[in-house]
Write a protein that binds this DNA or RNA. Structure first.
Lengths: 170, 170
DNA sequence: TCCATACCGTTCGGGAGCGAACGACTTCTC
DNA sequence: GAGAAGTCGTTCGCTCCCGAACGGTATGGA
């Protein structure tokens, strides 16, 4: 009598009530839909609690982080690492450039390429911001045991691989 | 010699190489960062594979889905259920209205309220689209065992609760 | 009764996001 | 060595996305 159903969120119970009669894969649905629910909520939580002080959007923050970790890189690689399209990367780079966090220069070896690089101001911003960000990540993940956190990361890598490489399904 | 490190993605290995010396919670970092990595990739996968045929954005699709499951609802509840702000909801509703999927009307009981409702066209669109969407969800989640899918959903609900209610940390 | 208070959806301004198309540049091919 | 083909970053047009601010509506208390 005490089954999985009791664990569901109110919104999920409503879905069962309205769509329960249809032949759907509810197990996959709960996994995927909670992936989006939690990721959106955490993103907004981080923006409000950690990033708002520096008036930094999530994507700009990721941009700084990527350039910090990888060093100077071509616009194309930047877009890929941040996880956005090339047109979007142009805009994000312009934003960061306008705030003095980033510089653009042409690659002398290949006139098509543009190389983005952190300014000292950009570097110091991410260097002081990231530890705070990670502290909040740690707090958010705290309700999960260390082993659970490892399992979670492993399963998410599996999902990522299932759409990234083979381009899953049908 | 065969530890967790071997499981890491190339980008994650680079992070360890560059930031490994700092006192950070890498376990939480892998969990949270893979949450965003996988959610972004799956979202784009779904947009390209399922939603593109109907020229429907992710958010518009969720909007249709919400109205399908919940029936007619106030704009505020719509925004909350879709997971967007009220200003954004105004825009999304306008988009759906322009495409003939949704109608807006004033609540006669309270002149401030606006009630959104699916048109027959909107209803038939989501009714034929959602089973296809769920089939793809199923395919994406397939590399995980049923028990793993349940565990994943449960852990994600825990993370969601940790930022939604108590507003976690510090 | 009337006026603060509060809540609703919308508008505004600005950044993020994409596919398609474009000019600049490199490389391949004959 | 000149034209075709490919690749790069950018621009364009549109949608999404948010916080702040605004007008319209309801409600509680003096």
């Amino acid at each position: 009598m005490n089954d999985q159903h009791d664990q569901l969120l109110p919104a999920e119970r409503k879905v069962v009530k309205e769509l329960g009669h249809l032949p759907l894969d509810f197990r996959a649905m709960w996994a995927i839909s909670n992936l989006f629910r939690s990721s959106t909520a955490i993103r907004r939580h981080m923006e409000a609690r950690v990033l708002a002080n520096d008036r930094l959007s999530w994507t700009s923050f990721v941009g700084l982080w990527v350039l910090w970790v990888w060093g100077p890189m071509e616009a194309r690689a930047f877009a890929s690492a941040v996880g956005i399209s090339r047109p979007t990367a142009t805009g994000v780079m312009s934003t960061l450039e306008g705030r003095g966090f980033l510089t653009r220069r042409k690659d002398p070896k290949d006139g098509r390429m543009v190389i983005a690089e952190l300014t000292p101001s950009g570097r110091s911003t991410i260097e002081t911001l990231f530890p705070t960000f990670n502290l909040e990540e740690s707090a958010v993940a705290a309700p999960l045991s260390p082993a659970q956190q490892d399992d979670l990361a492993a399963m998410l890598r599996t999902l990522f691989a299932s759409v990234a490489t083979g381009d899953a399904g049908s």
